[in-house]
Structure formats: structure tokens, C-alpha cells
Design a protein around this nucleic acid. Structure first.
Length: 409
DNA sequence: GCTGCCGGGTA
DNA sequence: TACCCGGCAGC
């Protein structure tokens, strides 16, 4: 694109120049002879072609680094110096603000600076960075950390060249790695404050959140002493996989999650492994996260006697061992029936719809629930056929007191 | 009480 | 998974 512009520029220049000196030639026509005219014209053309070639070469070199069309040859070096000075000043002025992490110059500065950076992709014409609208890391303060890295103990970040590994590899291999990262990886910032877990997409946002919510510094939102850095971490999310996953990582207010949250911020390996790593549906749902299992244990202890004849589809494998809690609160545990049921025995609490009917018939009038128990087999069974003496002749199911498989009704 | 068989426990 | 058994329910 740059070259197109320049070639047009050159066309304009080259078309301008002949017309420019055609006029003086016409003025001098009466003074000079034909020979001098010829020689001067030849000389002018030679000069012109030489200067145009020089200019073109120089512009090519410069334009590969700077997209802005160079104004004059003499000012190019000055411009470069200005750009470099601006870069240095900007990095100097921004880096101390965020104490620990270094500013990435190629993200914190304007596009024109990046384009002027002489070190990056000088001739490829490929720009991995497109516009300041890239939201992935607006004021990215932190160095490239691993997703599980724990921020509080990281060193205050050496002020290196400001190019992270991805950029470096990009420079090395000239591969569109940053583009991949931009498309599929999203850097988020997660609050590590006890039982908070708020996730924001900007460092400034998470810092502000920590200052305001956790540190109680509402007024000093702009000036940071860097303390917030210890309470959030940077996480890289695969946006392809976590598009919906983020919904479930939704901020949880401390008051909501205090009851079930651990006493210390859990490293991301346990909480942000989330959906992305596994399948998207394998999320830590709020229900499973906050489910007070002990409560359900208490309830399910009496689930058998308490459960009214409610048909629960697909619940044939429900067990009263606490792992399944979905039916435990459907009725008061003790008061549903006055019939005492021996506590240690939970024959088949919810184990099968058949059983459910059988047991609830004891304690409550049948409500027209389907008779789910398999009707008793009318035919002869192994027991009857072979007798107790020949038990070894029974079919396996009969020996196991299961439904006979030899004489199936 | 006999019988069928479900649910659960154990190795 | 194989095996065993407590216990419920129909007859």
C-alpha cells in the first residue's frame, strides 16, 4: 500500500519536473543556441533521472519503516531521531507508573511508532498489529506470564527491549504467531482476592477493582502504588473455547461466595482450568461450586422416607449417599410420614421408580403413580425347578438372587 | 412362608 | 465384574 502511494507520488514528481523546466527552457530559447539547448536538456534529463533514482531508493528504504511519506530527504533522519526520542520518552514516562510490570512499547504506543520501529519486519510489509483498538491488552503491565503463574512473587520485571516472547519468535520466524494469539488467545486479569475471582479484560480495570473493592481506595483510582498487582493475575484464555466459559467465570461477589469459597485465593490451575481445557460443558457451575454437600448429606439421609411419590425421570440411579442431592430437599425429611423407618436401612431410596412406588405405598396413599416394579415372574424359575439342593444348577442370576435369566417370563 | 428380584456391599 | 446377601413385595 505504501509503495502504491509512493509510486503515484513519483509519477506526480516526475511529471511535474519536466513541466517545471520546460518553462525556463522556453524563456531561454531566444538566448541560447540549439546546441546549448540540446546539451542543457540532456544534462537536465540526466540530473533528473539520477535524482529520481536516488530519491526512489531512499524513499524505498524509509517507507519500509515509516508509513508516512517522507517529506524531504534532509528531514528524514531528523524524523527518525524524533521518533526514537518519542519512543524513549514514552517508555520512560510510562514504565514507572506501573511498578512491577514493564510496558510493552509496541502496545502502549501509537501505531506510527510501531511502524517506525526499525527492528521489526522492516521489509516484509506484514503488520501483525493492526490498530490501537486491539483490546487484548490495553495497558498491559505484565510480562508474559504463564497462565498459572502467581503474580505476587514475580520480580519487578527487567526493562528489556519490551518485546515479549511471542513477538520475538515472530521476529525470528516471521510467522503470524501474534495473529494467532490475537484471534484465539485473550489475556484476562483475574482478581486473586479471597473468594472474589473477578475477571476483567484490562489490567487497569482489575487494578481499579482491587483498589476500590478490596483495598478500599476509592478516591485514588489513578495513582497506584502497585499494591494491586499482588492481588490479580494474568490469565490467557482461549477465546475460541472460552467464549461461553467466561459466562460462568462471571464475577462472583465476595458475599455470595464466602460461604463456600476457600480461605485463600486458589491458583488458577484449579479454577481457571475451566471449560476451556476440558470440554466447554465441563464447567464448574455455580451449583456444584456452592453446593454445601454436608447439608445434602443430612437431607439425603432421610430421602427414602421423605420423598413423596414424585416421579423423577432418569433418576433410577439416584443414591442416597450424598452425591446426589437433587431430590433431597423436595420434602421435609422427617415429618412427611409418621411411620418410623429404621434409619440404617435405605433399601432403595430413589433407586428405581419401581421401588419408589413400592415404598411410598407404605407411607402415603398412592397418587396414581405408575407401577414401576417389574411384575413378578409367574413361570417356574431355577429355584423351583432345581430346588435348593441343586443350587449349583441354577442360572447365575438366580444364584445371585437376581432376575432369572434362564426362565424368562 | 415361599419366591422373585432389586439394591447394595465386597473382593 | 462376579459374587453374595438383606430385604421387599407378590402370591
Amino acid at each position: 500500500m505504501t509503495f502504491t502511494f509512493q509510486s503515484e507520488d513519483f509519477r506526480r514528481d516526475s511529471s511535474k519536473k519536466p513541466s517545471h523546466h520546460l518553462f525556463p527552457l522556453a524563456m531561454e530559447e531566444d538566448v541560447r543556441t540549439a546546441d546549448t539547448k540540446k546539451t542543457s536538456r540532456v544534462l537536465d534529463q540526466e540530473k533528473e533521472t539520477r535524482s529520481v533514482c536516488l530519491l526512489e531508493q531512499k524513499r524505498k528504504v524509509v517507507s519500509s519503516n515509516i508509513d508516512v511519506p517522507p517529506a524531504r530527504k534532509s528531514s528524514e533522519e531528523l524524523d527518525m531521531d524524533k521518533v526514537t526520542a518519542a519512543m524513549v520518552l514514552t517508555s520512560l514516562s510510562t514504565s514507572p507508573l506501573v511498578r512491577s510490570p514493564p510496558v510493552r512499547p509496541n502496545e502502549g504506543l501509537s501505531g506510527s511508532w510501531k511502524e517506525g520501529a526499525p527492528s521489526s519486519s522492516s521489509s516484509s510489509g506484514y503488520w501483525s498489529w493492526s490498530a490501537p483498538s486491539d483490546q487484548s491488552n490495553p495497558s498491559t503491565p505484565s510480562p508474559p506470564l504463564s497462565a498459572d503463574s502467581f503474580k505476587p512473587f514475580r520480580s519487578p520485571a527487567p526493562p528489556d527491549d519490551g518485546i515479549d516472547e511471542a513477538d520475538a519468535s515472530n521476529l525470528l520466524f516471521d510467522e503470524p504467531i501474534p495473529r494467532k494469539r490475537k484471534n484465539s488467545m485473550k489475556v484476562m486479569f483475574k482478581c486473586l482476592w479471597k473468594s472474589c475471582g473477578k475477571v476483567l479484560n484490562t489490567a487497569a480495570g482489575i487494578q481499579k477493582h482491587i483498589r476500590a473493592v478490596h483495598l478500599g481506595r476509592v478516591g485514588e483510582s489513578d495513582c497506584s502504588d502497585g499494591e494491586e498487582d499482588f492481588y490479580y493475575t494474568e490469565i490467557k484464555l482461549n477465546t475460541d473455547a472460552t467464549a461461553e466459559g467466561l459466562n460462568t467465570v462471571a464475577p462472583v461477589s465476595p458475599s455470595q461466595s464466602l460461604a463456600s469459597a476457600p480461605a485463600f485465593p486458589i491458583p488458577d490451575s484449579s479454577r481457571t482450568e475451566t471449560p476451556c481445557a476440558k470440554t466447554d460443558t465441563k464447567l464448574v457451575t455455580p451449583l456444584s461450586r456452592s453446593a454445601p454437600t454436608t447439608l445434602y448429606l443430612v437431607h439425603t439421609d432421610h430421602a427414602y422416607q421423605a420423598t413423596p411419590p414424585v416421579t423423577i425421570p432418569g433418576s433410577t440411579k439416584f443414591t442416597p449417599n450424598g452425591s446426589s442431592f437433587s431430590i433431597s430437599w423436595q420434602s421435609p425429611p422427617v415429618t412427611f410420614t409418621g411411620v418410623p423407618v429404621s434409619p440404617p436401612h435405605h433399601p432403595t431410596a430413589g433407586s428405581g421408580e419401581q421401588r419408589q412406588h413400592a415404598h411410598t405405598a407404605l407411607s402415603s396413599p398412592p397418587r396414581g403413580t405408575v407401577t414401576l416394579r417389574k411384575p413378578r415372574g409367574e413361570g417356574k424359575k431355577c429355584r423351583k425347578v432345581y430346588g435348593m439342593e441343586n443350587r449349583d444348577m441354577w442360572c447365575t442370576a438366580c444364584r445371585w438372587k437376581k432376575a432369572c435369566q434362564r426362565f424368562i417370563d
